[in-house]
């Protein structure tokens, strides 16, 4: 018979080793796979993207963005030049038209794939960027077109950025502007929320802001930006508000901006009218709620709470439907009965 202490120690060692090697993301195995994936092509493509986006890309900024050494950057630049994708004009990097096309193809793949993750999978928002970043290098152009078709040729990624067309065109709307540039009392629609840096984005999400939301500027000073949305009044530091892009309404809409209340705030027995479903309810879940008849204009009544406290059952169109608190929080209802 094996000595039990010995057996346990060996098993523990194997487990720790296995965890060290295979634990998701931090494990040695994944790291090894990651470095193997950082082939020359991938580095070149990432460099093209960086140069396309950045106003004045430098060797240092490239090294930072790609997390490689400046020596390696030099190799990548040389490679891009020999492929005639990049020119250097007075120490400035400039993409050739082939280089621009190439960069746009990668951006198209990235944004389409993010859209796919948002609509058709259950991945959390925080996972989208990284997953798309990996896949953008692996999808062939046929894959990308098939994906675009499947998604119904979407125009924007889930963060509100335009997706380049298959023939390499991408336009940011001319009317797009920063929130702080609006006139006082002017109404607009949120078109983009910058998802980097993550901490800032998380704060915007926590404020209940989302793309497509109507917004009205109340006050803009160097100290603070005060504005109103369907979720109530918000107060942000200008540096945070700078991450919100809007498009002003061409003409003043007829309907007043109605400040609603999350459905999850209803007391049992209260009845309200549904105002909107947050865009954060997406894909299958959104379709499901609409199938159940939870639509703008529908009357909804909180009927009863479960023995566990969550979910709460609501009466909609004669049926009783239970929704979880986090779902109900994303449905906006009228503040007054």
């Amino acid at each position: 018979m094996v000595n039990p202490l010995f057996a346990l120690l060996i098993a523990a060692a194997v487990t720790v080793l296995g965890f060290y090697v295979f634990s998701p993301e931090r494990g040695l195995f994944w790291k090894w796979q990651h470095t193997r994936e950082l082939s020359e092509r991938v580095l070149r493509e990432d460099a093209l993207k960086h140069i396309y986006h950045a106003k004045n890309a430098s060797v240092e900024s490239l090294a930072g963005a790609l997390s490689i050494s400046t020596n390696q950057v030099a190799d990548v630049i040389e490679g891009l030049q020999s492929l005639e994708l990049l020119e250097i004009e007075v120490s400035n990097f400039k993409l050739t038209s082939d280089g621009r096309d190439y960069a746009l193809r990668i951006i198209r793949a990235h944004r389409l794939y993010e859209r796919y993750l948002a609509e058709e999978t259950g991945y959390d928002e925080v996972n989208w960027h990284e997953k798309a970043h990996q896949l953008e290098h692996e999808l062939s152009s046929e894959d990308v077109e098939a994906l675009a078709q499947k998604l119904g040729n979407p125009t924007h990624d889930p963060h509100g950025d335009p997706i380049p067309t298959a023939d390499g065109k991408m336009v940011y709307s001319e009317k797009r502007t920063r929130l702080a540039n609006l006139e006082l009392d002017e109404r607009a629609r949120i078109i983009h929320l910058e998802d980097e840096p993550e901490a800032v984005y998380a704060q915007l999400v926590a404020e209940g802001l989302h793309i497509g939301q109507e917004i009205r500027l109340l006050e803009a000073t160097p100290q603070r930006i005060r504005f109103e949305t369907g979720a109530g009044e918000h107060l942000l530091a200008p540096i945070l508000a700078a991450n919100i892009s809007v498009i002003p309404f061409a003409e003043e809409p007829e309907k007043e901006l109605e400040v609603g209340l999350p459905l999850s705030d209803l007391e049992i027995g209260e009845e309200r009218e549904v105002l909107s479903l947050s865009p954060r309810i997406r894909g299958a879940e959104r379709r499901r709620l609409m199938d159940l008849g939870i639509l703008p204009g529908t009357m909804i009544e909180a009927e009863m709470e479960s023995a566990g406290g969550d979910p709460v059952a609501y009466r909609v169109r004669g049926a009783v439907i239970a929704l979880r608190k986090d779902q109900a929080a994303m449905i906006s209802v009228s503040a007054e009965a």
């Binding site: 499901r288 709620l289 049926a319």
Partner: peptide, 10 residues
């Protein structure tokens, strides 16, 4: 993690 997840209970 990546599978679609929805909730509703009639």
């Amino acid at each position: 993690k990546g599978e679609v997840s929805t909730f509703s209970l009639e």
